[in-house]
Simulated assay, not measured.
Amino acid sequence: MAHDIIIIGAGPAGMTAAIYARRANKTVMLLEAAAFGGQIINAHKIDNYPAAPNISGFDFAMKLYEQATALGAEFVFEKAVGIEDKGSYKQVNTPSASYQAGAVIIATGSDKRKLGVAREDELIGKGVSYCAVCDGAFFRGKTVAVAGGSRIALEDALYLTDIAEKVYLVHKLGSFRGAEAEFDRLKERSNAEIILNSDITELKGENALESIEVTSRDGSVRDINVSGLFVAVGRVPENQNFASVIDLDEKGYAAAGENCLTRTPGIFVAGDNRVKEVRQLVTAAADGATAATAAIKYLNDKKA
């Protein structure tokens, strides 16, 4: 067997799983389609992870990567496009290769959800962005908008108030559930304007974004001149490639509980791609530890 465990996804859940698996002396390969760290790498500052206050998402991800590699975890930057259950082993396929392991942990997390407005794709990189930390500096001294009502959207708006001349936050609902602290902080920023019960219904501009059309629940329409729009309307789980070996709920999340087990013995899930109530950095790390522990037990039981 080429590896004891293959982990698909090198975010916090995947890299935590790798650390636990290597400490149990299991050979580990992490398959990552993009860059290690997952979405946390874009966090300007992490305040809610125990014993690591005020660390940036990039620094946190780098520490995890360095810890995993120091323990001997192997990183391969390829996209997993499918898993085959071969009985005595699992085969993970990429566009250019196939890899075998005794167990697999799917820790693919989630991808950005789009706003779903006409010309959104056309204007990506021309005013439309999904990462305030990545692209905010391009809009220094300009007027921008953030779409969304999550804690991430509020954090993006707060971050942008330190860079942009003015920041509009557009939210389709009338309140921000579970993010009251960030909402209160944003209300105190003099260059922030919060627009509730409204949707962004049109993106305007010829070669780049120049304005957004905002339609409120009462039907009134407002054009707002902006140079940038940062979309933060949620995430989409990346599980479709593995639907042949795991069950998915109606939203595409892996149907696995706190034990991280799937319907296929030897295949586990961890992190934001599974059904769960809380999706936070600390719960992703907890999932990684749980899934790795379950995978280690599965492999050891097979040997017994």
Rank of each mutant, 00 (worst) to 15 (best):
L71H: 04
E74Q: 13
K45N: 11
F58K: 08
Q67L: 05
D47V: 13
N48I: 10
P53L: 14
G57A: 08
L71Y: 05
G57N: 07
E66S: 06
K45G: 00
M62F: 08
M62A: 07
L71S: 03
I55Q: 06
A68F: 05
E66G: 02
V76S: 13
F58G: 02
T69A: 09
G57T: 09
M62N: 10
G57H: 10
A73P: 01
F77T: 06
P53I: 10
Y65P: 00
D59C: 07
D59Y: 11
A52G: 00
E74I: 08
A68M: 06
S56R: 02
F77M: 09
P50W: 10
G72S: 07
A70V: 03
D47E: 15
N48H: 14
N48D: 13
G72H: 09
S56P: 04
Q67S: 04
G72L: 09
A61K: 00
A73Q: 00
A73M: 03
K45R: 13
K45P: 01
I46F: 05
K63N: 15
D59W: 09
V76G: 07
Y49I: 01
K63M: 08
L64G: 02
F58Q: 05
F75M: 14
E66K: 14
K45E: 14
A52I: 13
G57C: 07
V76M: 11
A70S: 15
A70C: 02
S56V: 04
T69G: 01
L64F: 03
I46D: 03
Y65F: 14
G72N: 06
F60Y: 11
G57R: 05
Y49K: 00
N54A: 13
E66A: 12
V76Q: 13
N48S: 13
A52E: 11
F58W: 14
L71I: 04
A68P: 04
F77I: 04
